[in-house]
Structures are given as structure tokens and as C-alpha cells.
Amino acid sequence: MTLKKKNKLLACFKVNRSIFSVWIFLFLYLFHTSIYAMPSLQETSYIVITHENTPVKKISINRLRTIYGLKTKYWDDQTPIIVYTTNPLEEEYRAFSKQVLGMFSHQLQRAWNRLIYSGRALPPTTVMSFKEMMEAVSTTPGAIGYIPKHELNATIQQLEIRGINNED
């Protein structure tokens, strides 16, 4: 490498460093303003559905989080929990994660990846539409999924979520 080229490289390195400090200030400012921006559990446009034989009809938000966090693997009887999800790159996944579970979708994705690829959890099954979700959940024992409220019909069982202060 010529000396000139080397100097250019070093200059680039220094410029990069000052840009970085600007970034840090920008981030600190944004964090300061968004510190309470963690999603709060709100009125949701999604409902949680299960297979009709599932022994649980009501569930706490905490339990639902451990199910969707792939930590709880069985229902209270001996049925394994089969978790269904929509495409994580699409808006429905983001909205469900934020509104129902109170987590950002990138947090949920990261938790899934860590558990699945270190052999600690079963990967969820991805469906491409809510129609497919309803078919799969209603025909698979132990299945759990989610759909928009307006899609609910008599053929599918809704899982009622208890108040957010109820931990069990």
C-alpha cells in the first residue's frame, strides 16, 4: 500500500470517529425521549385462539408471554403446545407482539432465535394467512394462534386473557 493511500485510510478512520460521537449524542437524546416507549398492554385488535380440546379457557398475560416466548411447552394436561405465528417480517406479527404480548417484535424474534438454535425450544410454525391460521389451530390438538377480532367465528375457540394485574 502506498503512503498516500494509507494516509487516506487513516483520515477516513478519524472522520468515522467524529461521526460516531455525533451518533452517540443522537442516540442518547432519542433514548431519553423514548425511555417510556415500551409498549403498554392496550386495547387490542387481535384475539388469541386455541384448539377446542385445550384444557385452558382463560389465561394470564404472563402465561401467554411464556408460551409465545417458547418457555412453556405443555398445557396443564399432557398436550404439547404448538405455537403458530404469521410471517415475522409483516405488520400483523409486529402488531400482535406489541399489543398482545407487550414486546417489540425484534425482542421476540431474538428470544426465539436464541432458544431454537441452541436446542432449547421447538420452533413455532409459520402460516401465510389468517385463514390458514384458523384451519391449522382448529385441527391441531394443543395449537395456539392469533387472528384479528373481526375474523372470529363460531368454529374456533377464543382464549380469554385475564386482566394485566393477574399474574397466574
Binding site: P80, G119, R120, L122
Partner: peptide, 18 residues
């Protein structure tokens, strides 16, 4: 490249390999 299998064997048993 990787390939893994995981199974829930019972309420308290889980197994996996990659």
C-alpha cells in the same frame, strides 16, 4: 450449514440435536 431436530417428549422431557 446446520440442521437441527428438537422434540417435546413429555411434560418434563425435551431433547434436541444439531
Amino acid at each position: 450449514m446446520g440442521l437441527n431436530v428438537s422434540s417435546s417428549l413429555s411434560k418434563s422431557l425435551f431433547s434436541s440435536a444439531q
